[in-house]
Write a protein that binds this DNA or RNA. Structure first.
Lengths: 114, 114
DNA sequence: CCAGCATATAACTGTCGAGGCATATTTGAT
DNA sequence: ATCAAATATGCCTCGACAGTTATATGCTGG
């Protein structure tokens, strides 16, 4: 489908934070609310956007709704990225002076900031 | 810089189209205007957003301004994506055939922890 | 300097989305 | 049946942003 939903979903920093949270483990809404410091309805809305983008799925457990990450759409993102990856692999030398901006130790832990 | 600019820049479909155009080759503004079917000022505004996100650079050639893609920020996107890549390695390796990950010979930067 | 092309900026408008509060809905417990 | 807990939805406001037209800026040749 159109990846417009995917991009708009990930465009919001709160939603990226939620996605990062769910990368660690599935969580009920309450935990997510507390983690991202938003109101519960606001968080629910973000979760709805993420659901409609296919980024998360819900499992019902008593009154709780446990949200979990769905890797599919993120794989789509990776596919979108693929053509560009060749670009910086090949032109790494030419533009390398611009590329070494990030600290060399940023690839150790899966700790998405933001 | 903050990747918020990067995400918001790529959130717009016209801007993604421009980025795709510049992947093929650098282009002056006129070409981009014609390609994405927007007004010239509108296109210029999008280019400004892409510039401020670091996604494109400009080279002045007489009256023309030739825009070219800068792979740096897209590499940041790839870095953001990295933790999630492991996720679909484990769960659905059906689409995992494209994951050469970052090139193995990029000894310049320590390879993502695989 | 002047004319003309190519691009950027300004000012304005309409739309969309984020965030808040109040409320509805669903589920479990007593 | 009733109540409480957990989550979703409706309504509202406000600010951000895309897109337009008109105008300014910059560059080049004559």
């Amino acid at each position: 489908m159109s990846d417009a939903l995917l991009w708009t979903a990930l465009a919001d920093p709160h939603r990226r934070a939620i996605v990062a949270l769910l990368l660690e483990r599935p969580r009920p809404v309450g935990e997510i609310v507390e983690a991202c410091g938003l109101s519960q309805p606001g968080t629910s809305k973000h979760l709805k956007v993420l659901r409609e983008a296919g980024l998360v799925r819900v499992r019902q457990d008593a009154q709780r709704r446990v949200y979990a990450l769905d890797p599919g759409p993120i794989a789509e993102l990776d596919a979108w990225l693929a053509p560009y990856r060749t670009l910086w692999n090949t032109s790494l030398d030419a533009l390398g002076d611009r590329l070494d901006e990030t600290a060399p130790d940023t690839s150790e832990k899966p700790a998405p900031k933001d």
